[in-house]
Design a protein around this nucleic acid. Sequence first.
DNA 1: ATGAAAGCGCTAACAG
DNA 2: CTGTTAGCGCTTTCAT
Lengths: 317, 317
Amino acid sequence: MADPATIGDVARHAGVSKSTVSNVVRRADVVSAPTRERVEDAIRDLGYRPNGVARALRQRTTHVIGAVVPDQRNPFYAQLALGAERRARDEGFGLLIANTGCDLETESAQIAALLERRVDAVLVAGLCAGSHAAEHIADRGVPVLLGGFRTEAGERVGVVDVDEEGALDALVAHLQGLGHTRLAFARGALREAGGERRERAFAQAVARRGLDRVEPGDEPTAVVAHDDTVAIEQIGRLERTGCRVPRDVSVVGFDDIPLASHERIALTTVRTDAAALGARSVELLIAASRSGAPASTRESHPWQLVLRASTAGARPR
Amino acid sequence: MADPATIGDVARHAGVSKSTVSNVVRRADVVSAPTRERVEDAIRDLGYRPNGVARALRQRTTHVIGAVVPDQRNPFYAQLALGAERRARDEGFGLLIANTGCDLETESAQIAALLERRVDAVLVAGLCAGSHAAEHIADRGVPVLLGGFRTEAGERVGVVDVDEEGALDALVAHLQGLGHTRLAFARGALREAGGERRERAFAQAVARRGLDRVEPGDEPTAVVAHDDTVAIEQIGRLERTGCRVPRDVSVVGFDDIPLASHERIALTTVRTDAAALGARSVELLIAASRSGAPASTRESHPWQLVLRASTAGARPR
DNA sequence: ATGAAAGCGCTAACAG
DNA sequence: CTGTTAGCGCTTTCAT
């Protein structure tokens, strides 16, 4: 494990100063052609690769973004994180991923670790219910942005989300149009901050439309799930207890994960572009970190109702 | 964006030297109680958090591991990466994730970026077919390990995989037992190095058992897929063309992703513990990075045949 | 166009 | 037990 060559080694080898090597490496066009060539040869000879840690210390910027997710296995977060990672990479940034499992203690430890590593910004794709972690990050002067969901957060916390109120209303309207009147909401297993918003939007849509909200166990004719993963689980649960979907119960999801369009699942859902949410979040975070200002932009991305075979006309019970 | 307090600020505030602060922070129990308290108060007053970048530069270790995956959306990689991240976190390490899409150029750029960031080790969970990237990492003196697959690689590249030959033989044996004789192998979309091994193992099992290998389009009675994701796609593709699974064609996967056990999918597959593979890989990598030696351990983890409803007796054609 | 010098914030000998 | 010193490898004025 030979120590890698340093800029000093290159300078010595090429017979120039460290500053000149630095100028060559950073493509500063101040170096004369012959000198540049000598330096480039030396770099090649020694297999020199700049040390990003030293650079980060000096420049006070790591070019790394932290991504806080409840669980990267969830297809929505996976997609969002991939979009984020791609965009980050395109901009010369790395992505440090931190799963929290929506556990408050883990969450704060993970965030502390990211901050200690001096990430340039933090993309928060999900938070524990009731957590104020995003604001604490902002307090530290680090750009932070909620990507893919929204909670109450101060001015200094950006948001890139989708209009969940509108989407849930569209879902409920669709079910109402099919004659459903007993609707239930199925929460996810994780206690995510975003879950409360969806559930509230569901409750409001149901109330506004004069429908009945019942518990999932209380024989609803339609189940609105927190997301597609939960919806697919619900289909399994329902069919295990003898109900057929959509014959007896309709089920709708949220996100339109790849599997939702599979023939065996065919889930009616709301499509969101998770990769775009992730990419856009990173874009805003990088801009903020460059400008030294908080990432305070707030924007909602569009959604689209996708009708498939998991919903059908209500069956009189 | 006030600059965060440094160790010097704390030292001044507490009226001690930087080394003493450093000793307190690192819990070196060499500091007297009264001094330690003064320092701790100063730390609290100033909201001091050590700068990991400076520490990394000085200690020549970042406590960050790079994870190279073809696509983190694939449930197998997602699970493996999660297992890796958890273990890393438990050991005080961070995980920098790099997706390659199995594109050679992207792969080498991502690895170069990881190395430039001076990750302490690299967990490679998938490589482009024909890539020698792992050995190049080892050449740089950075511990590297193939997690979840295996390719030809030199001594200095560790491996934590599963016995795919055995697993594929078990899968083929199971199909043979059901009377299948025309078997096809369905590759994944990504050109992963690991794909060749599975396909080869399949081909050998088929040949050894005197069965016929046909192409997926050539009316096989059973399809062996590269992994569960591919298997589920195959079920969709087959049913779209009028075949029923398993009535007309049996399908088996690999990995036992969460969805494989869903009632609507019920995939016969081989279970591997992706999270354990990831965790173990990280464990070995950290040990290697601590010892300064390559991560040269090679071990295979067990697999388990899981019989579900996607396989049934062959139907005469 | 190039070089010398001064740190970024921290740790690790080594003195005292 | 505490302080002094000397860097880690790089960028960045500032001279020359």
